[in-house]
Computed example of a mutant assay.
Amino acid sequence: MQNKTEDSKTCTGVMISARAYTSILAEALSRDSLETGGILLGHYKSGIWYIVEATDPGVETFHSEIHSVMDEKYHNHLYPVLSRIYREDLYLMGLWHRHPGSLDTLSFDDHETNRKYAEVIGNGTLSILLNLDPEPRLTCYYLDFNKTGKYYRPPIYIGDRKFRGTGYLNLASPDELFRRQAQMKVEISCNP
């Protein structure tokens, strides 16, 4: 499924913030040898996908050595909660999950999940695999669902220095939060 001879024009590289990478490692290590994962939130611009936040799987989850199920209701709640603390709203970028051992290829279930995410996102989807064998290793797949239907393997870069000049890591000021109050109430289903 992966395409080694061509490059994707839609996703040419993936930048992961220090916070997102730390979140991924903390979740994976907390589950020991079990599969786990979460969603990726951020921005894309000029073929670069910037991952600002990575979540845990949620509360109502299932984990085994070969499969995990995330909590969709939890993610639907967490997405606007995380997005509102940044100056610019975050977008759903895809998902990450841990595979056991050194398995760094996508399973049948992964392909189905990626297809569903790509349909929702509308610009393809990222699927980042974490392996701990024994050092952490990330493998990124980008599914260019709408244009080519193929997987590509863009390079991954970790660290906040890759975000310089983007403003994507800037937090919302108190004044901005007050201006967004009505929007935030709607997002968490509060009565205005």
Score class of each variant (00 low, 15 high):
Leu82Cys: 00
Arg84Leu: 03
His97Arg: 12
Asp110Ala: 02
Thr148Cys: 01
Leu129His: 05
Leu143His: 13
Arg98Thr: 14
Cys190His: 06
Thr55Val: 04
Tyr168Cys: 03
Leu130Val: 02
Thr139Leu: 10
Gly42Ala: 04
Arg87Asp: 11
Tyr151Ala: 09
Thr148His: 04
Arg98Phe: 11
Phe145Tyr: 15
Ser8Pro: 08
Ser23Thr: 10
Val81Asp: 12
Ile158Glu: 09
Ser17Thr: 08
Thr61Ser: 10
Leu143Phe: 14
Gln2Trp: 03
Ser127His: 01
Gly94Arg: 10
Phe178Tyr: 14
Ser46Tyr: 13
Ile24Trp: 09
Asp144Ala: 02
Thr55Trp: 00
Arg180Pro: 04
Tyr142Cys: 06
Lys73Ala: 14
Ser23Arg: 05
Leu138Trp: 13
Glu112Phe: 10
Thr125Ile: 05
Pro154Arg: 01
Asn191Met: 11
Leu103Ile: 15
Cys140Pro: 02
Lys45Trp: 12
Gly94Val: 13
His67Leu: 12
Gly42Asp: 02
Glu72Val: 14
Asn191Ala: 06
Val52Gly: 03
Thr10Arg: 12
Val69Arg: 06
Thr113Glu: 04
Leu143Gly: 08
Lys150His: 08
Leu25Thr: 01
Lys185Cys: 04
Phe108Asp: 15
Gly101Thr: 10
Ser107Val: 03
Arg98Ser: 09
Leu138Pro: 08
Gly42Glu: 07
Glu35Leu: 10
Ser8Lys: 06
Ser127Tyr: 03
Lys116Ile: 11
Val81Tyr: 11
Ser23Val: 02
Ile128Trp: 06
Tyr151Met: 06
Met70Lys: 00
Ala172Ile: 03
Thr12Asn: 03
Asn123Ser: 12
His75Asp: 11
Lys9Ala: 11
Ser30Phe: 03
Glu176Cys: 01
Ser189Lys: 14
